[in-house]
Design a protein around this nucleic acid. Structure first.
Length: 374
DNA sequence: AAGTCGTGGCT
DNA sequence: TAGCCAAGACT
C-alpha cells in the first residue's frame, strides 16, 4: 500500500527528472509527427462546437470506425443544437440505436435543451460551465474546448492514459494514478496549440502506441519513453484482473393480439437501456420453466394473462457486466387490459411500425427473427 | 468510491 | 474463440 504510493510518486515525478527542454522536445516532436500523420476524421473538418460535441459523446468508450456512420447520420438529421433540442427523445434514441450506453444520447439531448435555454444556443466556453452540462466530464469538455476553440484545456482519455503511462513507465494501473496522469497531461499540453496537441496525443495512442504491439520504432517519443527504454512497453499500462461476469436466463414474450399486433414496452428512463423499447419479460427464478417465467413476468409487469406458445429464438448477448440468454416465445393475449406497471409506456404495434422505435441490440435480433420467420 | 452502463472490433 | 477493451460519465 505505502509501497505502491511511493512508486507512483517517484515515477510521476517526471517533472523533477525531466528538464524543461525535454518538455519542449516532447511537444515539438509530437506536433511534427502529427502534421505528417494525422488521421482524416469527419469531425476534424469542422470547428462547429456542436458537431465536435456530438463526436466527443459518441466516441466515449467507442471506436472511431464504429462512430463514423452514426456521426454522419446524426448531423444529417439533427444539424444544429436547436434541432436536437426540439427533437423527440424517441427519434434521438433511434439515431443512437446500436451505439450502446444510451444515457449518452439522453444526456446529449437534455444538454442541448440547456444550451438553447440557458446559453442562447452557444456552447459554453469555460471548462467549469461545460462540465455542468449532463454527459460532459472533464475529458469531453477538454476535447470540445480545445478542438472547437483551441482553448488550453487538457484531456485524459484511454489513449492518453496509455501513452502517458508508458512515457513515465507508470508502475501501477492508470486507475490508481488518475491525479498524476492529469498533472502530466496538463504539464505537457502546448497551450498555444492545444487543438493539435490533444488530437496528436490521441492519434499517437490510437495508431502507434496501441494496447498490443505498439509501433515504437515509428514513435516520435521513443527516445524519451521510459517504458521503451526499459523494454516494458507491452507490460504497461498495468491491468487489474476482472471478476467473471454472471449469466442470467431471461424469458421474453412476443405477445400477439390476434390481429397482427405485437405488444412492446418502453423501459424506464433510469438504469439499463433507459428509454429504449423492448419485448417484455424477465429473469427465470430457480426451478422455474421458461413458460412459467414468461407467464409470471407478464402478469407482474403488464397485468394480463397470456398463453405461451412456440419458441421463436434464443439470443445470447453480453452486456458490460453480465451476460443474458433471452428465451423468446410467441405468446397469445388471453385477457386483461395491458398496463404500464414496471415500465413507462406500452403499445401495440405491427411488424411494419416497429422499426420506428428504438430497440437495444438483443431485441433487434428478435425483430429480425420475426421478419425472416414472416 | 466502486458499480453501473452497450456494443462491436480485434486478435 | 473467448476475452479484452475502446476519444468516460454518473451515482
Amino acid at each position: 500500500m505505502i509501497e505502491q504510493k511511493k512508486q507512483v510518486r517517484d515515477s510521476a515525478g517526471i517533472y523533477d527528472t525531466l528538464p524543461s527542454f525535454a518538455v519542449e522536445s516532447l511537444r515539438r516532436s509530437l506536433l511534427a509527427w502529427y502534421a505528417e500523420n494525422k488521421r482524416d476524421l469527419p469531425w476534424r473538418r469542422t470547428r462547429d462546437p456542436y458537431a465536435i460535441w456530438v463526436s466527443e459523446i459518441m466516441l466515449q468508450q467507442t471506436q472511431v470506425k464504429t462512430v463514423i456512420p452514426y456521426y454522419e447520420r446524426w448531423l444529417a438529421t439533427l444539424p444544429t443544437v436547436k434541432t436536437l433540442a426540439i427533437a423527440q427523445q424517441q427519434d434521438v434514441l433511434k439515431l443512437w440505436q446500436g451505439l450502446g450506453y444510451y444515457a449518452r444520447a439522453r444526456n446529449l439531448h437534455q444538454a442541448a435543451q440547456v444550451v438553447v435555454a440557458q446559453h442562447g444556443g452557444t456552447f459554453p466556453q469555460t471548462l467549469e460551465t461545460a462540465m455542468q452540462l449532463p454527459g460532459i466530464g472533464r475529458t469531453t469538455a477538454g476535447g470540445i474546448l480545445s478542438a472547437a476553440f483551441n482553448l488550453p484545456v487538457a484531456i485524459l482519455d484511454g489513449n492518453v492514459k496509455r501513452v502517458l503511462a508508458r512515457l513515465v513507465a507508470l508502475p501501477v494501473p492508470p486507475k490508481r494514478a488518475i491525479a498524476q496522469l492529469w498533472q502530466i497531461s496538463e504539464w505537457l499540453l502546448d497551450r498555444e496549440q492545444s487543438r493539435d496537441f490533444n488530437q496528436a496525443l490521441m492519434d499517437l495512442g490510437a495508431t502507434l502506441c496501441t494496447p498490443a504491439n505498439p509501433s515504437c520504432f515509428r514513435c516520435p517519443w521513443q527516445p524519451m519513453c521510459q517504458a521503451y527504454q526499459q523494454g516494458i512497453q507491452t507490460e504497461i499500462p498495468m491491468t487489474e484482473s476482472r471478476a467473471p461476469i454472471p449469466h442470467k436466463r431471461i424469458g421474453v414474450a412476443v405477445i400477439w393480439d390476434g390481429q397482427g399486433n405485437i405488444l412492446i414496452d418502453r423501459r424506464k428512463q433510469s438504469g439499463l437501456l433507459g428509454g429504449m423499447w423492448e419485448f417484455p419479460g424477465g429473469k427465470l427464478e430457480p426451478g422455474e420453466t421458461v413458460e412459467e417465467c414468461i407467464r409470471r413476468e407478464i402478469r407482474e409487469e403488464l397485468g394480463i394473462e397470456i398463453e405461451v406458445g412456440d419458441r421463436l429464438i434464443s439470443v445470447d448477448h453480453t452486456y458490460s457486466h453480465f451476460r443474458v440468454t433471452l428465451e423468446v416465445h410467441h405468446c397469445k393475449h388471453l385477457s386483461g387490459e395491458p398496463q404500464a406497471i414496471e415500465c413507462d409506456e406500452i403499445r401495440w404495434v405491427t411488424l411494419e411500425e416497429i422499426e420506428q422505435f428504438p430497440f437495444p441490440a438483443a431485441n433487434v435480433r428478435i425483430i429480425e427473427a420475426l421478419r425472416s420467420g414472416k
